[in-house]
Write a protein that binds this DNA or RNA. Structure first.
Lengths: 252, 252
DNA sequence: TCGAGAATAGAACGATGTTCGAAATCCGGC
DNA sequence: GCCGGATTTCGAACATCGTTCTATTCTCGA
């Protein structure tokens, strides 16, 4: 067939976009299709607008992802509640290690650290693409600095030296991002249809088929891996780090 | 001008490639230009061969990166020395925390954990692109499982419960990958001409310019950040985790 | 010598990020 | 009410990249 005799649709405005709306939709797409599924063309289509329009509001794909990360980190900050200490909208399993102290200052500091770390992880776990990307965004985005501040303050209250505070804060940050990243990659090719444990069983089977003998320890924990719980696993490791920090503070 | 009357260069063999050579060159390119600088065309050119030839030896870009990661993880495993306990070719700063025990079994287990973690970090620090990519490769590649095995054995020797072993091993893995990833991203846009401290000063200046007040703690550690040492920083956080593990083991 | 498999080479395809100029819309001043 | 500049939209066009496909060349044993 011939092209339309007259193009009754020439370039021009159709919908109105906003920076916030674009970031919002980008987050939705990222949650649905993962980092590889975010396409500027697809995003524009989802918004009902043109490709060039997106570029007018956002500088490029890199900045868009940075904005999305900063937005979610901000929500984590919000979910952690005020620094003072009100309860937050994040899971908070009880500590499973004995801190061997009843100093209220120490216990309060540990509680604040725990709340911030859990809130951050909670957000990273619900947006698996975020963990990998945010490692860059933490230094750039403004909310990343706020998180760092809220991790550092309690460390100062513990009486650690400035260097210990610095090392402790980066250790916590690295731990949170690292565990979340590994979990995100691990659940990357997940199939929403089948149960998680069933899929993990297949993963383990794939491991143990290729490299059979010698890996006796890995085999011994395969069962733990299949039946693991992300939050509990993260919380357990976090407790170890916090216990180390407390011991370091009390020994100083 | 007309095309050449006779193409005296028709497709055919010119150079001979091998899978190992391709992976080796890919690692070199990744080290030089980062993850964004690795292009299959560029890689083929660097090898002096054609694009299709690379595809005959390697299944695609994803597999190539996986192979490169597994290769370097294997080298980290090698650098860690035999599980028995010989010295290795990696830095090993002394522990700065007091484990408060002299049990030889515990001390030996901690030593093995420390050596494996340091060897892994040493490799991740020297190949900044590796940290981010390897999070996926650890589950897939065979060497990733070997690392996990070598992290798990000492945890079993500490007398931890199976669940504690599992949580401890993933905590260590997450910590190593996380800290290395953050450091890699932080030094991403590095300029080889200027000194590192000078560049870090600029980074800090950028932070503190945008979000001035309130971030009192971040300001207080800015100096530590500028003069930090990657290995020392990693080692300090690792010690905290190990201390926590030891205390957990002794308390059980 | 020759023929089948191994290996190389590069054109071609589709998708993607980015740039660019033209068009439509909005809005304050007259 | 209308006009003109600033704002915002739109999609074509370009360059690059991963991947596929086929023709060609090389190797080596019968």
């Amino acid at each position: 067939m011939p092209p339309r005799p007259r193009s009754d649709r020439r370039p021009g405005r159709r919908v109105t976009l906003s920076r916030e709306q674009i970031v919002e939709t980008a987050i939705a797409v990222l949650d649905r299709d993962g980092i590889g599924g975010l396409t500027l063309r697809g995003l524009a289509a989802e918004l009902g607008g043109g490709l060039g329009s997106v570029y007018w509001h956002v500088d490029g794909k890199a900045e868009l992802i940075e904005l999305a990360c900063d937005e979610l980190i901000g929500r984590a900050l919000e979910a952690a509640g005020p620094p003072g200490g009100a309860a937050a909208d994040v899971p908070s399993p009880p500590m499973e290690v004995d801190l061997e102290t009843s100093d209220p200052v120490v216990l309060d500091a540990v509680d604040r650290l725990r709340r911030m770390a859990m809130a951050l992880f909670w957000q990273l776990d619900r947006h698996p693409w975020l963990a990998v990307q945010s490692q860059a965004a933490f230094a750039g985005g403004s909310n990343g600095l706020l998180v760092w501040e809220r991790l550092g303050r309690p460390l100062a209250d513990l009486g650690l030296t400035p260097r210990q505070q610095f090392h402790g804060s980066t250790a916590l940050m690295g731990y949170v991002l690292g565990v979340a990243s590994v979990m995100a990659e691990q659940g990357a090719g997940a199939d929403r249809e089948r149960s998680q444990e069933e899929q993990l069983e297949d993963v383990v089977e794939g491991w143990l088929a290729d490299a059979p003998e010698e890996l006796t320890w890995v085999r011994s924990v395969a069962d733990e891996f299949v039946h693991h719980d992300d939050v509990a696993q993260f919380s357990a490791g976090l407790d170890l780090l916090l216990l180390g920090l407390v011991r370091q503070a009390l020994a100083g």
